[in-house]
Nucleic acid binder design. Structure first.
Lengths: 339, 339
DNA sequence: CTGAAAGCGCTAACAT
DNA sequence: ATGTTAGCGCTTTCAG
């Protein structure tokens, strides 16, 4: 391995000088600078960011914890999109992403978020799909590690979080239904009490009130955001004495499951029963009829997360905050106008 | 920040001793060991992997370069699945994943694969979705950095690669069509000459020969693996004087595009024209009719990639190799039996 | 069984 | 403008 000493010797200067040209310091003569640069290229020398980080105390690395409820690791499309956008933005600033896992070290000791972050010396943390129940969260929120999490209300001296405007999004969904003449609207939500699930439920209820619609406990179902749970919830709903004319689902996958249950029952989505989903995943365009849904702006979420984390890491006394990103209604074919 | 010195002082021993208990060396008395462990816990001390890596020359980190042709970064579902599986396997061995980007440093110098890898001191590299034309590939293949790439025939002293059995998979596709009575079979391939595209074309041709089917240049179309390109190719095909009874597409997304073109022309997929795709992405189950396709075993691909890289990194003189993972036929609704 | 000391590759005072 | 040197937090001979 070529080190800064090799370059220094070959160029006939000291390591300090080499370091200075490498880091673009001005107090180096043009002659020396050129000489060093030439040797650097000649030797194919690459400064070692790890050693540099050890002394500067900045690794230019942000740690990512990415889980999803199904324990499917990398496979959640919505969060993927957020990460992709986050990576682009934070990459611009020179940071690389280190994907971390909580685990038991070879000493048998369990290492959670904070421990892993310190171990790897990351400058900040980005959390996605982490359930509220995770035991490492409390310690993390109290720590001084700059952190931003999405869809999880983790708040602390250096911890901001970011969500879509889930309350508003849910209202958009119900409003759209009402605008199309629906007054009997069911809801398939989440049984885990995630922040988004909770807020979408809230928005649903607010909208019911705003439109003076009847609140019917038997029309409130619970799932886990996955297709099967939406299917099951819809089956239960279809067994009720009185059926709603529309159902708002807290995720697209649940909406798709619900659509299957409806077809299976010999009914037609968008005819007897209207459906609105949430997320606007890629699939929503491909099912038939196309799913009307509330779109989460993943690009913007990633960007906002990146700028927030950058500030948390690089601005002293930057107060943490909560960031909300607007949603938008995407009309496709699952809502019928019955006015 | 708590360091090993803090622990040593508090425990009344030397740093060497602390280091030994941290790394589970046997030559420490039970008494000292316990004392140290207790202090470690008390202080909430986390050994710094970066400093450790600097001296041991192993960072326990593997670098990932993940691109896709559409420059959509994290958004390619097939490669996602491979990474997820890879991460699980390599994580077991204690490695974390560092997502790297080629970029221009603040000195204005472009840093490619090798440069970034050395800079970040990774122990190995995993490449996905990197086009053959990337200029950094030649240098990398000559380097001593353990590398495994998927769907890219990068081979070198420490570089293995891994693909599905694309030739065999393509043959499975054509065989299935022939078994259903088809003898006029078109092909929508790839215009970039990627390794998978090339091999699927090869398998198609081999199968034609094996079944003594006619090779018709006007029935060979080219796309870019994306939906739109499949749509366009199908439109061109539909304009031909004589139509095939089936078309084999080198990707599911192209197959889906082709299906749209067929519907739009007033024909029915699985009736007048049969379709077979390649990949078995999630969407394949949801389009209507369900897409018959060749499944790539992403779980196995990730696992094999991980074990190969582990060997390359940890076994001296491990010769590089090329790894092939079998595909399988998934029958859904897009092929009609016309025998 | 334990500790002193050298050094991994680099940066940052501080001299010169 | 350039060089000397002391670390960053850790592991690893090598003595004792």
């Amino acid at each position: 391995m070529t080190t800064i000493y090799d370059v220094a010797k070959r160029a006939g200067v000291s390591v300090a000088t080499v370091s200075k040209v490498l880091n673009g310091y001005p107090d180096v003569s043009a002659r020396t600078r050129e000489k060093v640069q030439q040797i650097t290229a000649e030797l194919g020398y690459h400064p070692n960011a790890v050693a540099r980080g050890l002394v500067t105390r900045r690794s230019m690395t942000v740690g990512v914890f990415f889980q999803d409820h199904g324990n499917r690791g990398f496979r959640h499309p919505f969060l993927h999109d957020v990460i992709a956008s986050f990576k682009d933005s934070i990459g611009e600033a020179g940071y690389d992403l280190l994907f971390l896992t909580e685990h038991r070290g070879n000493d048998g000791v369990f290492r959670g978020f904070e421990s892993r972050a310190k171990q790897r010396d990351v400058d900040g943390l980005f959390l996605l799909g982490v359930p509220r129940t995770n035991s490492g969260l409390a310690t993390l929120s109290r720590s001084q590690i700059p952190t931003v999490s999405v869809d999880l209300d983790l708040f602390g001296p250096k911890a901001s979080y970011l969500c879509s405007d889930n309350v508003g999004g849910a209202r958009q969904a119900v409003d759209h239904l009402v605008a199309n003449g629906h007054r009997k609207i069911a809801f398939i939500g989440d049984r885990f009490g995630t922040k988004p699930g909770h807020d979408r439920m809230l928005g649903y209820q607010e909208a019911l009130q705003a439109h003076a619609l009847e609140y019917r406990p038997e029309w409130i179902l619970e799932g886990d955001f996955g297709e099967t749970s939406g299917y099951r919830a819809m089956r239960r709903l279809l067994a009720e004495a009185e059926l709603p004319t529309a159902v708002f689902c807290a995720s697209d996958m649940m909406a798709i499951g619900a659509m299957n249950a409806i077809s299976e029952a010999g009914l037609h989505v968008g005819e007897q029963i209207s459906i609105v989903g949430f997320d606007d995943i890629e699939l929503a365009r491909y099912v038939s009829p196309g799913l009307t849904t509330i779109r989460q702006n993943t690009d913007k979420m990633g960007q906002r997360a990146a700028t927030e984390l950058l500030e948390l890491m690089n601005t002293t006394n930057k107060p943490p905050g909560v960031i909300t990103v607007e949603t938008s209604l995407v009309v496709r074919g699952t809502v019928r106008n019955i006015a």
